[in-house]
Amino acid sequence: MKGYLGIDVGSVSTNLAVIDEEGNVCCHRYLLTRGQPIRAVQAGLGEISGLLPEEMEIRGVGTTGSARQLAGVMVGADVVKNEITAHAVGTTRFFPNVRTILEIGGQDSKIIIVRDGFVVDFAMNTVCAAGTGSFLDQQALRLGIPIDQFGQYALRSKSPARIAGRCTVFAESDMVHKQQIGCNLEDIIAGLCEALVRNYLNNVAKGKEILEPIIFQGGVASNEGIRSAFEGELGKKIQIPEFFNVMGAIGAALLAQEGTDGLGETQFKGFGVINLHCKTRSFECRECENACEIVEFSIGDEVTAYWGDRCGKWENTL
């Protein structure tokens, strides 16, 4: 049986998914990156290798997410793709008639506009991380609420407090202020959810035509408070897919299937990479005024990849 593996290494979470030839998800894992992408990928591979159906053989690997290049050289990926394409491919597999994808992850948020199964427009947050998972995590921690209950608190609110969502710094000081004047916790949390959604719609989604069906995914989609704030603000129905937090990995797996289709050969190095000693090192190249930051990737003592050089000088030495 042929299987295809997708790995999505984001700033907060590392997700893996394996699909079969028909594009059905066989198994998936969601782990925290904890700032150590190499270790997260190794741990993820270890876990998923135990979940694979018997007699399944990996015939293609795709990586995506902000550490896609690193993960790609590490496992030997056939396809290394940006997360916008990966998410769009994953979502259109399950919802062929989707027209809007809202995605909010750990450090970035994006909107993808799809028409007739093709991406026609997209946007990502540029200068601001307000409204992403990291900020919610941080606020949950500060308020002493487990992040998985954050949404329920928001739903219990009767009159959400008004909180400035433009910037995380203002949002936080506004929340402290509302606490101190005696607003209750539920109202503050619901107010925060509304502020984040407003911020998202006014920045990332500015000028985009948001049409149904709307799919909301990424780690933050598990937060019911944000979801209901979206529904309230847009006046439209929001759907959350079953695999909302591993959609990027599923997309990468589908792209790997597409990429190796007809070739038959995969670059995948096998699950043995779990035990290899991989390390990276970065330095500034001083050959010209570009001063590129070069990343050197080595397995054991052997350098296997360079990237970051504009001219290709280091890359071509291997």
């Binding site: 940006n82 916008i84 394409t85 093709f118 991406v119 026609v120 997209f122 990502m124």
Partner: peptide, 16 residues
Amino acid sequence: TIMTRLSAFVDLIQRR
């Protein structure tokens, strides 16, 4: 950020 957007844009046009 730049590479993500550029490659997504190229993909968009290629798939189209």
